[in-house]
Simulated scan of single mutants.
Amino acid sequence: MGCYGEHVLPRIVNAACGAKTARPLRRRVCEGLRGEVVEIGFGTGHNVPFYPPAVTGVAAIEPSDLGWRLAADRVRAARVPVRRAGLDGQSLPFADDTFDTALSTWTLCTIPDADAALREVRRVLKPGGTFHFLEHGLAPEGDEGVRRWQRRLEPVHKRLFGGCHLTRQAVDMLTAAGFRVTALDVFYQKSTPKTMGADSLGIALSP
């Protein structure tokens, strides 16, 4: 990852993802999580305070050692056991049909092979398990001006923010991986530049 990716970027992400404006969205996307949860792109643990009482344990997938260290206070304060269980969302170290629910927040935009990661999430979810997601991506059809700016800015944005894409479409990727989206909100955040694109918050069902 290099010095920037290992020592600087996790601190930038920790500050940016800790914004107060994101807390209501984190609370919403965590609603309905239950049982054993796998969270891909755990980051520095900003979702931990919003895990509902029905959660019994969380397997955190996080590649950054510094990110995991920055999450230490949140992990210690968690109401449920949270363990770092893997480094790569594209290759999860679990048996099939292990988890009741899965969670991802602003992660599918960055994972190098998001399609592989989604296939892995589907594999480790029990039949009928749900995947709760909060992602940003390509602006909706009709906002062609925003889309053009996203495509222009994406190469620089990827270099600055660890490979984060501006033009991925989470719902299309979920559908291609075999999920069925059962709930979805698409919206712009007022506190975020429109060039970041629209956020998608929803739940997808695993067959």
Rank of each mutant, 00 (worst) to 15 (best):
G5D: 12
H136G: 04
R34Y: 07
C3N: 13
E154S: 07
T195C: 06
W106V: 13
N47M: 10
R26E: 07
G89T: 08
L70T: 04
E141Y: 08
C17I: 06
V80L: 12
E39G: 05
A72V: 02
T175V: 15
V48N: 03
R151E: 14
G32A: 05
G57L: 09
L25F: 14
T182W: 00
F179I: 10
A85T: 14
H46I: 08
R84I: 03
G67L: 02
R151K: 15
F187Y: 14
A183L: 06
L166G: 03
E31A: 14
E154D: 10
P52L: 01
G178C: 13
Q189G: 01
G128N: 03
V58E: 00
G41E: 02
K126W: 03
C109M: 02
G129W: 01
I40D: 00
L134P: 01
V82T: 07
R180E: 14
S191R: 13
R159I: 14
F179W: 03
V13N: 08
G5M: 08
V8K: 13
E141F: 09
F161N: 11
D113N: 11
T98I: 08
G142C: 11
V55T: 05
A85F: 15
M196L: 11
D143H: 14
V48Q: 06
G137A: 11
L184R: 09
L118P: 03
C164E: 00
R84N: 02
F131C: 00
Y51A: 10
R119T: 13
A22H: 11
F131P: 00
S104C: 12
D73Q: 14
R168P: 04
R83V: 13
R159W: 14
L201A: 08
M1W: 10
A19Y: 05
G5P: 10
P193S: 02
V80E: 10
D143M: 09
A15F: 13
A72Y: 02
P127A: 00
G128C: 02
S104N: 11
K158E: 15
F179N: 08
S64W: 01
E31G: 10
C3R: 14
V29P: 06
A204R: 06
V80K: 12
I111R: 00
L184F: 10
A77S: 15
K158R: 15
R27D: 09
T107Y: 02
L33I: 01
G18F: 05
